[in-house]
């Protein structure tokens, strides 16, 4: 495992309408890391992730992925991205969806079976996605992002509504991918997912409040859990202002 920066965000500013969704944010992510992007809904997590993937119009700063500006042509088969709402075709089966995206990516068709196994959808392979449960549909969407083992995985709330056993397995998969050299960014509004991440980025109102490991965060804020640390950081900010 090397520590080359996979993602390098510098002074990023994103304005959405009147709201400054991301306000002068900077951090970097190395290969082999699983980074949790935590914060309440509406704090700018999704916008930040979109900027990393390169589908967001940004107003200032820069995002570099694997040495290239985010969204560059050469990155398009090296970055896997899962949006919050599953983006798969409802009228195709799980296997048809995966086969289609594998052909677009130029990935081998063996990948289709492997990725269905990873998200535990093998039994549903020939079911039309529109008839699956919400959690199964998100997993189908996640499976697409895993095709071809990308170097960077950006996952927007991938574990919402999933059964705890599956959630644990998916986190193990994210760590396996990281151990194989990928960088993984996972967002969540559930603070207790923090303990599964190597490092945390805590966000609120477009600003990163903290960028450190969970033990460091708890020690610095003298809190018992992430929720407490978050409150502490917000209060510190209010007092400072």
């Amino acid at each position: 495992m090397n520590n080359a920066a996979v993602v390098e965000v510098r002074n990023l500013v994103v304005q959405r309408g009147r709201v400054r969704a991301v306000d002068r944010v900077g951090f970097s992510i190395a290969s082999g890391e699983v980074v949790g992007l935590l914060g309440p809904s509406g704090c700018g997590k999704t916008t930040l992730m979109r900027a990393i993937v390169g589908v967001q119009v940004v107003q200032g700063g820069s995002v570099t992925v694997l040495g290239q500006p985010a969204g560059s042509r050469s990155l398009r088969d090296r970055v896997g991205y899962v949006t919050q709402a599953p983006s798969v075709y409802d009228d195709l089966t799980v296997a048809e969806n995966l086969r289609f995206f594998a052909r677009v990516l130029g990935a081998s068709l063996d990948e289709v079976d492997r990725c269905m196994q990873v998200v535990a959808l093998h039994a549903q392979r020939d079911q039309v996605v529109g008839r699956l449960s919400g959690g199964q549909r998100s997993r189908a969407s996640l499976a697409v992002a895993l095709l071809g083992s990308p170097d960077l995985l950006v996952l927007d709330e991938p574990t919402v509504g999933l059964d705890p056993v599956l959630r644990r397995d998916l986190w193990a998969t994210f760590h396996d991918l990281a151990a194989a050299g990928a960088a993984v960014v996972v967002s969540s509004h559930v603070m207790d997912e923090a303990e599964r991440c190597d490092r945390l980025l805590l966000m609120r109102d477009g600003v990163v409040l903290a960028d450190e490991t969970l033990p460091d965060l708890l020690q610095r804020t003298k809190a018992d859990d992430v929720e407490g640390a978050f409150l502490e950081l917000v209060e510190q900010e209010v007092t400072a202002a």
Partner: peptide, 13 residues
């Protein structure tokens, strides 16, 4: 609206 277009355009399409 389903996000599949965005996904395709983020791929080598």
């Amino acid at each position: 609206s389903s996000g599949t277009l965005e996904r395709l355009l983020a791929m080598p399409t």
